[in-house]
């Protein structure tokens, strides 16, 4: 595999990650969201593996395998088990309607392209062009957390945001040091467990996972 061909394949992976990020933004069904999240993890894992192969930075393979186990298998499974246990099946309400969300998403992509353009010109890495996509994925994850009311969707948005950060690390500097990556992976796993506990508590207190309900906790003026 030549470097330029690898760069092309990596661009395709970046495009697919961006596509799944938008998919997460517009998907209404919660199971569909989980599938999309798993796909995003898979594309991220492939992209990391390709970059690791081309550049010879071998710890990227370890991060790739970590991504595969954590973000493609373990986390979606945990969330799936939670959804099954809490009987959340219905379509999710969004705060902003979906076409408007898409337009905001496009604006965010243009913004991140504009923001990373100077960095891209300075960089000499194979992966420099994907930095804009990585930043856009972070922003889209953030947008998803803002526009959704449901606790589970907000968590998926958070995890997608983390995917974007990981991708940014790979494209900007060929990955963070191994220790940091292991730490982040562990953090994500622990976070998933804590989310689970919180979901149960929110659900038993309010009989719903709609975070709007938490407004009730405010003291009366």
């Amino acid at each position: 595999m030549t470097t330029s061909f690898a760069a092309q394949v990596n661009s395709i992976m970046a495009a697919l990650i961006l596509l799944t990020a938008f998919g997460l933004l517009v998907q209404r069904r919660i199971l569909g969201l989980l599938h999309l999240f798993a796909w995003q993890g898979l594309f991220l894992c492939l992209s990391t593996a390709i970059v690791g192969y081309v550049t010879g930075v071998h710890h990227l393979f370890i991060s790739s395998i970590l991504t595969l186990t954590l973000k493609v298998i373990v986390l979606p499974y945990i969330l799936y088990a939670l959804i099954e246990k809490l009987h959340i099946k219905k379509e999710i309400e969004t705060l902003v309607n979906i076409p408007a969300t898409m337009l905001i998403g496009i604006a965010l992509v243009i913004f991140s392209y504009h923001l990373t353009a100077p960095i891209t010109q300075l960089s000499t890495l194979v992966t420099r062009s994907t930095l804009a996509v990585a930043l856009a994925t972070v922003m889209l994850g953030l947008l998803m957390m803002v526009t959704r009311r449901h606790a589970v969707t907000q968590i998926i948005g958070f995890l997608a945001l983390e995917n974007g950060l990981f991708f940014a690390a790979t494209s900007a500097t060929y990955g963070m040091p191994m220790v940091v990556e292991l730490g982040v992976a562990l953090d994500i796993l622990i976070a998933a467990f804590i989310f689970g506990i919180f979901f149960f508590h929110i659900n038993t207190t309010f009989d719903s996972l709609d975070v709007e309900q938490m407004a009730k906790l405010k003291e009366e003026d």
């Binding site: 970046a14 495009a15 596509l19 517009v26 979906i98 076409p99 998403g105 392209y113 804009a132 996509v133």
Partner: peptide, 21 residues
């Protein structure tokens, strides 16, 4: 929504031409 996604995809295509190629 269906056609909005079509527009979104086409715009993403155009953006990824500038970003990735």
């Amino acid at each position: 929504e269906f056609l909005g996604s079509a527009f979104l995809l086409a715009t993403l295509g155009m953006l990824s031409f500038f970003i990735l190629e």
